[in-house]
Design a binder for these strands. Sequence first.
DNA 1: TTTGTTAATGCAACAAGGTTGCGTTATATT
DNA 2: AATATAACGCAACCTTGTTGCATTAACAAA
Lengths: 126, 126
Amino acid sequence: MGVIRKTKAVEVLLNEFNTSTVAISAKALIEQLGDTFNKTTIYRVLDKLEDDGVLHSFLGKEGLKWYAKCNGCTAKEHKDVHPHFQCLVCGKVDCLSINVTIPKIPNRKIEMSQFLIQGKCEDCFT
Amino acid sequence: MGVIRKTKAVEVLLNEFNTSTVAISAKALIEQLGDTFNKTTIYRVLDKLEDDGVLHSFLGKEGLKWYAKCNGCTAKEHKDVHPHFQCLVCGKVDCLSINVTIPKIPNRKIEMSQFLIQGKCEDCFT
DNA sequence: TTTGTTAATGCAACAAGGTTGCGTTATATT
DNA sequence: AATATAACGCAACCTTGTTGCATTAACAAA
Ligand SMILES: [Mn+2]
Ligand SMILES: [Mn+2]
Ligand SMILES: [Zn+2]
Ligand SMILES: [Zn+2]
């Protein structure tokens, strides 16, 4: 897998993530770009960018899928593991550059983990 | 809100959770009990049991909703916060009695958090 | 035990996020 | 320019979960 051809959709989506520091949901991208590109295309490009190690994905509130830029990941390995913060007021999500110590669990092999913290962001935190 | 009447559906669902130590997904409950109770009923009873502090819910793989028994929670406060482990092989999910230190994040008010760890459970860990 | 109130249920229709199959288009290679 | 095929658009579909409303049943009062 992986992105092979530099199409309009790939270009536009990559630009979305390069000009923003926060995560973006697939839903938001479809709302924003759905007139220009078919939603199927958007889902498929996101999928491939993730396979390529360009983006990483995770599930936010209500199980919605969010994407954000990766730092130092490759197609072979997603090593950029970190928690995410979602504001319950404005809905914004961002990646936290924080190291979370994953607890050792007896008799189990941990392969991945997903840590979603929810609350009020700096803008909504009165 | 909260459960008021002890109906058949409430009884059966409570029994499901009392005879099992692991978490159960709404989907699994509907597959298992869907002939006896309407899925709407199952969703609504789970909802109420959660409001009552009897069950807690969280999202597992693929955004599916899972439920498990609460320990020492009330209708007013869900204090039973802990990570969950989902086996990527058999799909089983359980509650981890482990304290996770939620990192302090500047300028943000943390209201809740969700920690899902994925890997191989003791049965599937060859 | 009968009656009355209304919470809980079943059903059908719907919502929303995401996926699939397939014919068409456009990118990159020769 | 011709070719191969990755990527695209479209429509139809799938899944989990929700909603409105008429009907049923839990429970308390009479
Ligand atoms: Mn991230
Ligand atoms: Mn739990
Ligand atoms: Zn906010
Ligand atoms: Zn397992």
